[in-house]
Design a protein around this nucleic acid. Structure first.
Lengths: 169, 169
DNA sequence: TCAATATGGTTGTCGCGAAAAGCATTGGAG
DNA sequence: CTCCAATGCTTTTCGCGACAACCATATTGA
């Protein structure tokens, strides 16, 4: 009954392998990315994403709420991170003229410089540990798998909170 | 030149999509898993993994270093987590008779009870947001992709630290 | 016009994880 | 036997993220 091939109960062998593999990747990959960015450019991975998202925006300027959505972060977290990044001169925050409650975040010259310096090295690492480790078919599959999981997470976030209570509002 | 389809520079469209999808999943999935375990059973995902790994071991007993490896954790982290779990009665630590420096960690009855209670609900969530969101082929692909990435991470950990210095020991 | 509510961000407090320093025990070398 | 290095784990310090409370501005309704 107790096979040596010990997989998580409730899942078959294939499912268990996929699950444990995913868990392991989610545990190991982020620290590696953080470490490289921190060592080479003094950035956390999240800060790097903030810079990337600002650069992709025309005018390199965005409202806090929008930036929070783009980076999958909560507003308090983004607020703290942006405060530190502003202290370091990477970005600049200013009150939005139209809506004085809102804050506009803009990339500074220094921020652009740091980003363009960091981008190459970081993408190189990404290639090394992800892209070049996979076949083109696997790349395609990974994109689809991620989308499916994220869609399931969205569905879960929508219906999940009210577990037993009929599931509909 | 600036297409509206803005992907990360240095990667083509497919690669960029896979990369950003993976990042997003790694950001969103762990909090969902943690939240469910915390709410339903008062466990972090890491604590859950500790219990699972102990249960899979014959005798449900393991040395700290081994447990750290199985859970992909550092020893200090595991030490802290085990201290808390012992306070709650889920596990028990004892000095190894053979090597009195070492510590053996064992699952208690309460720990088994909590685990068997939590396991069903958690696997149900895993099914919901991962397994059932994917086709069988995608499950297989995910297992292979994870393994490939983890292998690349191992290679990077082995060669990476000495970047410009000839890369070989 | 003025209250009442909603929206947009910021600021505490708490707990966890990382890194480095610290103890205890063991295994060898002289 | 004694000293020294190596191993196994714990503890301390620090910074970050989550959650909740909070302040400021906008918007709605009477």
């Amino acid at each position: 009954m107790e096979e040596p091939n010990c997989h998580v109960p409730g899942l078959n062998a294939e499912e268990s392998q996929a699950w444990r593999g995913l868990i392991r990747t989610m545990q190991l990959l982020p620290p590696v990315l953080d470490a490289q960015l921190q060592r080479d450019d003094g950035l956390t991975h999240f800060e790097f994403m903030v810079l990337i998202m600002l650069e992709l925006e025309p005018g390199t300027t965005m409202r806090m709420t929008v930036l929070a959505t783009r980076t999958n972060a909560t507003l308090p977290r983004l607020s703290n991170v942006c405060a530190r990044m502003e202290d370091r001169g990477l970005i600049i925050r200013s009150v939005c003229p139209n809506d004085r409650r809102a804050t506009n975040v803009a990339l500074t010259g220094a921020g652009e410089a740091v980003l363009s310096s960091a981008k190459g090295r970081h993408i190189e690492l990404v290639r090394k540990v992800v892209i070049d480790a996979l076949t083109p078919q696997q790349i395609t599959a990974l994109a689809e798998i991620s989308d499916s999981i994220d869609a399931a997470l969205d569905r879960h976030a929508a219906n999940g909170p009210m577990v037993g209570t009929a599931g509909k509002k």
